[in-house]
């Protein structure tokens, strides 16, 4: 899966969790940009992403994420290693 495909799959999850059907996800996006992206939804997002791609994030990896692009990159790294 390339990063674009991952971004698209993630976008579905973001839309479902934030309940914003027309949300467009871009790599530069951060929690600041989406009012619904609070700390509770953040956990939900991380867990949903783990389930969706069959991967597991490390505590430190999650702490370091700056934006959507970095999440996509991390997913790519993990799915490549699977």
């Amino acid at each position: 899966m390339n990063e674009q495909e991952i971004l698209e799959k993630l976008a579905e999850t973001f839309r479902d969790i934030f309940d914003i059907p027309d949300l467009v996800l871009n790599p530069a996006m951060t929690a600041e940009d989406v009012p619904e992206w609070d700390s509770v939804n953040h956990i939900t997002l991380i867990v949903a992403t783990e389930q969706q791609f069959g991967i597991k994030f490390q505590t430190a990896e999650i702490e370091e994420l700056k934006n959507v692009g970095e999440l996509v990159h991390l997913v790519k790294e993990k799915t490549d290693n699977n």
Binding site: S39, V40, I43, V47, T59, I62
Partner: peptide, 14 residues
């Protein structure tokens, strides 16, 4: 355990 440390969720959301 990570979710416990992060959010005090003992039961996994999944």
């Amino acid at each position: 355990p990570m979710l416990w440390h992060r959010a005090k969720q003992e039961i996994h959301p999944a």
